[in-house]
Design a binder for these strands. Structure first.
Length: 560
RNA sequence: UGGGCCGUCGUCAAGUGGUAAGACACAUGGUUUUGGUCCAUGUAUUCGGGGGUUCGAAUCCUCCCGGCCCAGCCA
């Protein structure tokens, strides 16, 4: 694979630590998803980073579910997240953890802070807490409950734990500084009361630690040396450090990096959820979704996703990566690995008038010009074939090289044919059939007399064709930045109405008859396609993963 | 507006005082039985802007401008 040196600010930090033998030169990271939704390509950036760094520095990376909020989290997401990470190709071995595994330990930590006079039970209501917190520009003020005795706090916290209070009646707070310019330090909440069943601990607890009182300690318990997270947690770092310091536990270090944004899609759980719930897409694994399950369903490979994550780099600058880069990596891989095959999506019937009526023959076709070991196959040819509708124009513009009246082109691996006449539907004017003649001397697509044609078309013999359904996917949004909307509208107004097209009765070459589920092909001149799980013995269903680069499409776009 | 962070090609991104890597995108030409692939070439005299230090600055200092994050008992 790539031999280039990966370099970024986090690796710089690690290498400096290695030089000074900090942490005894141990590199231990973790990927900490909350099980409240599906993973997307942005999460892949994060776990490729965490697992990748561990791999490169002989370290380890844990998988830890950050499950501190029972009302938002569900078991089914735990499984889907594990499946997605495994699919991309990472292994946490026996290091699967849950923040909820630490609830007992966390409770002891809370007790210690109370005993040290650094935490207190506060009976202010949520509204009052907000008021007392102050604003961005004004300091907050101390809670009237802030100076309770340690004994009283211990007693009240015990009561919180045993369920003597209702939801919202009180919280446990860290006693830090209500005047701090960092709002996260204004006596942050450590525990809140939630009478709800937790997916792992059941009804054992009715108090649950907050993110801030969980994350750093969990890192510390697992002896994580580098806790990598996204930029929005920068403001939390002083608090992360405060808990670790005051608890006198292993000092994990939090380092923040910029999360991934991609053009023509959204990468926020909330927005993706809206697309699912309001039926803009069929589900989380809709092939248009940037979720890992969506990309998988679309036909993307794990390797292409890893290559992408390796290539996009890492920094603290807010960034939006061009989705063309993701497409580049899947094309790059599939160009090397996918067998070529001929398929006509929108068929136009072509009768070769001078070809013998009941004759048929088999022609040799190369499976993959990039891979000589892939060999060749036989493709049947006969008098009536299909070509792509787009490959014929009655009145071709200047740069159109394909078939047109009186023009000669090559049928790939077959013959040169020349268009002699066409038949139209009298009602609609639509072209329904072409009549051509072929040059028997050009068998195999060769040009015995050195005659040149400007185009080579793919085709499928009518009587040998296998029918299939093909699903075409395009960008989910019409705007590079879906959040760029008209007044009063939201990102969903930019959903691309043409992002999904379903084509039935496509004509495939017969070698595809037994195409296996989950395999990928290049349909010559069209793109890369994936056998969708909806396929049955009777009917194959293909997803278009991505088109080939298309010079003609560019020309057309330019002229428009 | 208090605090934190960020600003290098259209998009990511290297660069850490010695004279702007690379990738994608884009453009042009060549090869080609895929308008694919491949190959070659071209794209930042300049690093948000101004001042300063220095023989020398994207890198140091300073002022200014722009963007992102924080006022959940979410993570």
């Amino acid at each position: 694979m790539e031999t280039e040196n990966k370099t970024n600010f986090i690796r710089d930090i690690i290498e400096e630590d290695l030089r000074t033998n900090k942490n005894n030169s141990i590199v231990h990271t973790r990927f900490p998803p909350e099980p409240n939704g599906c993973l997307h390509i942005g999460h892949a950036k994060a776990f490729c980073l965490n697992f990748g760094i561990a791999e490169d520095y002989n370290g380890l990376c844990n998988l830890r579910f950050d499950d501190t909020n029972p009302i938002k989290e569900e078991e089914e997401y735990v499984e889907s997240i594990k499946e997605d990470i495994r699919w991309v190709g990472f292994d946490w071995e026996d290091r699967l953890y849950f923040a909820s595994d630490y609830f007992d330990k966390l409770y002891e930590f809370a007790l210690k802070l109370i005993k040290d006079g650094k935490a207190y039970v506060c009976h202010l209501s949520p509204d009052e807490i907000r008021e007392y917190r102050g604003t961005l520009t004004e300091p907050g003020k101390n809670s009237p409950y802030r100076d309770r005795s340690i004994e009283e706090n211990l007693e009240l916290f015990e009561k919180m734990k045993t369920g003597e209070f209702k939801n919202g009646e009180c919280v446990l707070r860290a006693k830090i500084d209500m005047a701090s310019p960092n709002i996260n330090m204004r006596d942050p909440i450590m525990y809140r009361i939630i009478h709800a069943e937790h997916h792992r601990t059941g009804d054992k607890w009715c108090i649950y630690p907050s993110y801030d009182f969980t994350h750093g300690q969990s890192d510390s318990i697992e002896k994580i040396t580098y806790s990598l997270c996204s930029l929005e947690f920068e403001n939390h770092r002083p608090l992360y450090d405060w808990f670790i310091e005051n608890l006198e536990i292993f000092p994990s270090r939090q380092i923040e990096f910029a999360r991934l944004n991609l053009t023509y899609t959204v990468l926020s759980k909330r927005k993706l959820r809206e697309l699912v719930e309001e039926n803009y897409v069929t589900d989380w694994d809709d092939p248009r979704m940037p979720t890992l399950s969506g990309l998988r369903r679309r036909g993307y490979t794990p390797q292409s996703i890893r290559n992408f994550c390796d290539r996009i780099g890492l920094s603290k600058a807010d960034s939006t990566v061009d989705i063309a880069l993701l497409e580049y990596f899947i094309r790059e891989e599939l160009n090397r690995t996918a067998p070529r095959v001929m398929a006509v999506l929108k068929p136009l019937k072509v009768v070769i008038d001078n070809y013998p009526d009941d004759f048929e023959e088999e022609l040799d076709a190369v499976n993959n010009p990039e891979d000589p070991d892939a060999g060749t196959r036989k493709v049947p040819f006969s008098k009536v074939i299909y070509i792509e509708k787009d490959d014929f124009m009655e009145d071709p513009p200047k740069k159109f090289f394909r078939l047109a009246p009186g023009r000669e082109v090559r049928l790939r691996y077959a013959y040169f044919i020349k268009c002699e006449s066409l038949i139209k539907d009298e009602q609609t004017g639509e072209i329904t059939e072409l009549h051509c003649t072929y040059d028997p001397e050009s068998r195999g697509g060769k040009s015995p007399d050195g005659r040149k044609v400007k185009a080579t078309l793919h085709w499928v013999s009518s009587k040998h064709a296998v029918e299939a359904e093909v699903r075409l996917y395009d960008k989910l949004f019409t705007k590079a930045n879906p959040d760029e909307t008209g007044e009063g509208k939201d990102f969903k107004s930019n959903v691309n109405p043409n992002s999904f097209e379903i084509i039935k009765n496509c004509k495939l070459e017969p070698s595809l008859k037994n195409a296996k589920l989950g395999t990928r092909f290049q349909f010559e001149r069209l793109g890369y396609f994936y056998v969708d799980p909806d396929s049955t013995k009777e009917k194959l269903v293909f997803n278009r993963i991505v088109t080939l680069r298309d010079e003609w499409a560019k020309i057309q776009k330019r002229n428009r």
